[in-house]
Design a binder for these strands. Structure first.
Lengths: 190, 190
DNA sequence: CGCCCCATGTAAGCAGTTACATGATTAC
DNA sequence: GTAATCATGTAACTGCTTACATGGGGCG
C-alpha cells in the first residue's frame, strides 16, 4: 500500500485537494512517485474512511468547490510505523531495456531512434529537477532544516538517476554508431 | 503488455519451461524485468492461445514433466512491431525515497538503518551483475556479435543503475552522519 | 522427519490504466 | 467558438501480489 504512504508524505508537507495532489505527483514529487487522478481520488476516499485523513470542504466562487485533505494523528502514526518496517528494493521493469535486449531483430537505425526518444525524455526530466534544485535549494552550502534536507536528498536521487540514464544512452548510442558506422544525424542544410 | 514482450525476448534467446523462465527473471535478466511464477504461467497460457508461443511436452523420469515453450513466427513479428512503437519512460515508484522524504518523522539512526538495509541489497545485486559480466563478457576489447552486444548493454545498465544507487546511499548516509554527528558503527570488540 | 528443489497451477484481492462524464470559468 | 484549466468522480478492465494446493525426489 505504498501509494497511500506516498500521499501521506505529500499531504504532511502541506494539506491540499486531490486535484493539487495530482499536480504535485506529476511535478515536484514526481521523482519518487507517480499516480493518476483516478488512483488518487479513490485512495483519498479509502484513507478518509480509515481515519488517516480528514477532509474540509472549501467553498469557492467562480470555480468548483474542493475538499482539502489533511493528515490525522492516526495517519501520521501509520506512516511512522511503515517507515520502520524494512522493504525490499523496488523491482526494475523497463520497456527500453527489453527493446534493447532484442535490438538485433530490427535495424540499428531503428534502435537508435528509440534510444534518442528516450534520451530526450530523460533530458527533459533532468531539466525540471535542476530547475527545482536552483529554485528551492539555491545555496549549496546553506544549513538546511531536517525536512528540507530529506527532501533535498530525494531530489538528488532524481538528478543522479536521470544523469545515469543519459550517460547510459550516450554510451549505447556511441557503441552502436561505432560498430555499425553510422554517422551522427546532422540538421539538413537549407 | 510488456510482460509478454519480456517473455518473448527471453524465450527467443533460448526456449525453456515456465519454471526456468522464473529463475531467469530473478537471476540473469533481472536487471530489466522481474516477474513471479504465477504471473509467468498465466502469461504463457495466454500467449500460447494467441499463437505467439508453441509448447512441447518433455517427459522426465524422477522429476515432474515440463513444457518447453518456444517463440513462433507470429510472436517474433509481434515483438518486432512492439519495438518500433515509441514508449514513455517507465514511472519511478520507490518506497525508500518516500521513506526518506518523511525521514524527519523518526530518528536519524532509524533512517540510517533503512538506508543501510537498502544499500546492502543493491550491493548484492551489483555483485551478481559483475559476476555475470566477468563470466559472459570477460574480454572487454573482444568484438561481440549483435545479440551479445545488445545483451551486454542491458547488463551495463544494471551495473550503472546499482552503482548509482550505492553512490546515492553513500552520499545520504554521509550527510546524515555529518549533520547529526553519528559516528560509523564499528564491529564490537570481543 | 522435516525441509528444499523441481514443476505446475488456481483463486482472491489489490494496484494501476483507460475510457467516460459533468460543468463552470478563462484565455485566444 | 473552442480549447484549456479547475475540480470531482464512476466503471470496466488489465496487471500484479499473496495465499493456497499438489506431489515426487534428494539431503541432513
Amino acid at each position: 500500500m505504498a501509494l497511500a504512504h506516498a500521499i501521506l508524505a505529500v499531504l504532511l508537507e502541506s494539506p491540499c485537494s486531490g486535484y493539487d495532489l495530482m499536480k504535485r505527483f506529476e511535478g515536484s514529487v514526481g521523482f519518487f512517485w507517480r499516480a493518476s487522478h483516478q488512483q488518487i481520488y479513490r485512495e483519498l476516499g479509502r484513507m478518509e474512511k480509515q481515519g488517516w485523513l480528514q477532509a474540509e470542504l472549501i467553498q469557492q466562487e467562480g470555480r468548483p468547490n474542493k475538499k482539502r485533505y489533511s493528515v490525522t494523528e492516526i495517519g501520521r502514526d501509520q506512516l511512522k510505523e511503515w517507515i520502520l518496517t524494512p522493504v525490499e528494493v523496488s523491482p526494475v521493469r523497463d520497456d527500453m531495456l527489453v527493446k534493447l535486449y532484442v535490438g538485433y531483430l530490427v535495424s540499428p537505425e531503428q534502435i537508435l531512434e528509440q534510444l534518442q526518444h528516450h534520451q530526450q525524455q530523460h533530458h527533459e526530466r533532468l531539466q525540471v529537477y535542476r530547475q527545482i534544485e536552483s529554485c528551492s535549494f539555491p545555496d549549496a552550502s546553506a544549513v538546511l532544516s531536517a525536512t528540507a534536507l530529506y527532501q533535498y536528498q530525494t531530489l538528488r536521487y532524481g538528478i543522479l538517476y536521470e544523469t545515469q540514464w543519459l550517460a547510459w544512452c550516450e554510451e549505447v548510442i556511441h557503441t552502436l554508431r561505432l560498430t555499425h558506422q553510422i554517422s551522427p544525424q546532422e540538421a539538413p542544410d537549407p
